[in-house]
């Protein structure tokens, strides 16, 4: 740049063509180099909005293994690239400052949460399922008919679970004789 003064936006405004200072006069090197986050993504993954049942298509932009942006997927014949306020807030959801990343454990009559490893938690839950299942077991009804079930364990699932997840829940619990398996779909 020959004239060092030209680095001043005001000087550019006064001397250049952009007298209102709303175009090239105001543009800095940084502005010129700025790119949308979506351009710098390492990869773009097609997803579906996790909120309501319209099922809008999403594009998830990832850079350095971090989600940098979630946008509507223009390819979707359902949503044609649109997202509503909730869908548009999806990145805010998955990166909420309130999100929990650690197992929390509260012992009976406890007043605080405690730490617990994930592996230990699964192991303890497995023990408790086995015990509660046995306690609530009903082999037969009063007429001697086989019931083959337990009323000691129950489940109520949300409706943002994947089909594959629901399939495993129902399969596992049915094989354990757990019948009180329910879902938001009832509500």
């Amino acid at each position: 740049m020959r004239n060092p003064l030209a680095r001043w936006p005001a000087a550019r405004q006064l001397t250049g063509r952009d007298r209102t200072g709303r175009g090239e006069a105001a543009r800095s090197q940084r502005t010129i180099e700025l790119q949308p986050r979506t351009h710098q993504a390492d990869r773009v993954v097609q997803s579906i909005c996790p909120f309501c049942a319209v099922g809008c298509g999403q594009r998830v932009y990832v850079q350095n293994e971090v989600v940098t942006q979630i946008e509507g997927d223009p390819d979707s014949p359902i949503s044609r690239g649109r997202l509503c306020p909730k869908g548009a807030a999806s990145r805010n959801l998955v990166q909420s400052p309130l999100r929990e990343y650690r197992v929390r454990y509260r012992r009976p009559y406890g007043t605080e949460w405690e730490d617990l490893s994930l592996e230990r938690a699964v192991d303890m839950i497995a023990d408790r399922v086995i015990t509660a299942r046995a306690e609530g077991w009903q082999d037969h009804d009063a007429d001697g008919r086989s019931l083959n079930r337990t009323l000691g364990v129950a489940s109520l699932g949300g409706a943002t679970l994947d089909n594959e997840e629901n399939y495993l829940i129902k399969k596992l619990f049915t094989a354990l004789g757990i019948v009180q398996v329910e879902n938001q779909a009832r509500i």
Partner: peptide, 25 residues
């Protein structure tokens, strides 16, 4: 809290961006 006997396990879940699977709309 001291009167409640329930043992509570909170296990953090993966978000939709962190797993593959299908939703039925």
């Amino acid at each position: 809290p001291e009167d409640c006997k329930t043992e509570v396990f909170f296990l953090p879940a993966a978000a939709h961006t962190e797993k593959s699977g299908s939703f039925t709309n």
